[in-house]
Design a binder for these strands. Structure first.
Lengths: 297, 297
DNA sequence: AACACTTTCGAACACAATTTCCAATTTCCG
DNA sequence: CGGAAATTGGAAATTGTGTTCGAAAGTGTT
């Protein structure tokens, strides 16, 4: 049933590709991921360190698998903000002969997890653009929320609670999209009687603020890709000053992870480019509640 | 966001295709299906009687949409047991210039109804205090989101979009719990190229800021109970200065309603006193998208 | 049964896609 | 700070795909 199209000598092409690029992962003892799940596992393992553009590709593929499956190489490259050739290189690093082969992974996955036998449940078609978008946004939020519980790292979470509860003062850091989350975190922490500083960079004083962090303080950082904001810099300073650092981020490629004592991955869906914050807020509230409970006890 | 690749004159190609084959459905009073749902409706209506091979195609497309979306024309043809050219003819009958255009319908559909199918049969999690709260928070968020669509006031929503789109400058006002929402609204508005001022009361300058509001400006206010913050005062000033005022609030008792030209009620659930913001954010994003779309048009 | 018309097939073509290659740039290390 | 290695961008070459077209087979009608 699945398209057998590609036919013949796969292994030949692979060997050739592998031999050519000395730097393929296969040469380093990795084996070519045969399924989408394996690929995800490799990407998230954090054992592979990519340069800038390739990391960009990895993040995009992590977050938009369906776009990778359905688009042409040019479209995917444009959406990921890289050159088509970069995608080919990326595929070859994993031992594939080219992008097309690699894309098959994604196609299989999308096809596999598609409800093939869809009855006739959708009676009403939405005639209204506004409602359609609202539905999409609600759907994205619900998808984000639904993903939280599967594979939630309870251990990391509890370590985060412990570290924050033990801290003398909690610095809450996040910019751009993450700022609404940190604002709410800071507010609820305060309402629970947990003293904290929201590093909002008003007056460009953020660096000076984190310059006051001490070894007994903790940083609660929230950061989403692209990681080009000021947040990593601030957290790096805090790290140098020996503070405990806990992070909520949206992929294992976040530069904050290396600096963090404990971190959680929270992936947010988007609809038409507008990203939900529902999951991050829910996790954040749980953190606040945990810290308040531990402090109170 | 979806690949705009195919570029220019779609309608030209369509007209040409239609004129060429005298027997297109368009000539028979049918219009080209613009969405996958529409196509399904046409196929299932039974009003169209296809010859053998084309019927074969229709049945296959009905039963294997994901294969159509993901395969090449050769693969799809092989799976459906027809010639590639038959697929092209099929597409042209519906008014499309060729198979690629037609396939776009399926791609859109698969992409659109994607990451909901990601739920893996996850084993039940242990009764853990942290997980329990997280569940509660997720539940509250989902409850909030679920309530949006029932009884959503589309008319008010569209009036809000119209007012905001017509405004010279948009002032975004909200404090306490509402502030994270306004922060995200302001950010996304800016990202969409819609100029706006986030009234954040840094330096206690909020009153002075709203003192600058003019009659051609609009205020987007977000306010939740208890209504004891500074927000009502600020909005009152804006109202005196003849600005248009639109409001997102959580009950009909909000003092802002009397001042507003249009308003929406968004009720957020809470869990153990921690309130969700998911619904407000979703509605807010829809507002931003609507305004950006209207401004762009 | 013969005609006119529709439908199907398969090969040739035109086009778009992917891949390769090399120069330019950046990063890393001594 | 300089040189080597790695990484990247972009254009050229190649491969594969979709579309067109004319001939052949099929279908229904007079």
């Amino acid at each position: 049933m699945s398209g057998a199209g590609k036919s013949s000598g796969r292994s030949h092409a692979d060997e050739a590709a592998t031999r050519k690029r000395g730097r393929s992962l296969a040469a380093l003892g990795y084996i070519k991921p045969q399924t989408y799940e394996e690929l995800r596992a490799v990407l998230s393992s954090g054992t592979v360190h990519f340069p800038k553009r390739l990391r960009q590709v990895a993040i995009f593929m992590w977050q938009h698998p369906s776009d990778v499956a359905l688009g042409t190489i040019a479209q995917v490259a444009a959406q990921a903000g890289v050159q088509p050739s970069t995608l080919v290189r990326f595929a070859q690093i994993f031992g594939y002969s080219g992008f097309s082969d690699f894309q098959g992974l994604f196609k299989e996955h999308v096809k596999g997890s598609w409800p093939e036998a869809r009855g006739e449940p959708r009676a009403e078609v939405e005639p209204n653009a506004a409602m359609h978008f609202l539905r999409g946004m609600v759907g994205a939020s619900q998808a984000s929320l639904g993903r939280i519980e599967t594979g939630f790292d309870v251990e990391s979470f509890e370590k985060m609670v412990t570290l924050l509860a033990a801290a003398e003062l909690i610095y809450v850091i996040g910019s751009k999209r993450a700022f609404p989350v940190t604002a709410y975190l800071s507010l609820t922490l305060s309402q629970q009687g947990v003293r904290n500083v929201l590093v909002d960079n008003v007056g460009s004083s953020a660096l000076d603020q984190v310059g006051c962090i001490g070894g007994r303080d903790a940083v609660l950082a929230v950061s989403f890709s692209p990681y080009n904001s000021i947040t990593p810099d601030l957290v790096a300073v805090a790290h140098e000053r020996k503070a405990r650092i806990v992070t909520i981020t949206d992929s294992t490629f976040s530069p904050l992870i290396a600096l963090s004592d404990s971190w959680l991955e929270v992936v947010e869906s988007d609809f038409a480019g507008f990203r939900s914050l529902a999951a991050s807020l829910a996790v954040g509230m749980a953190l606040v509640q945990g810290v308040a409970a531990k402090r109170g006890a």
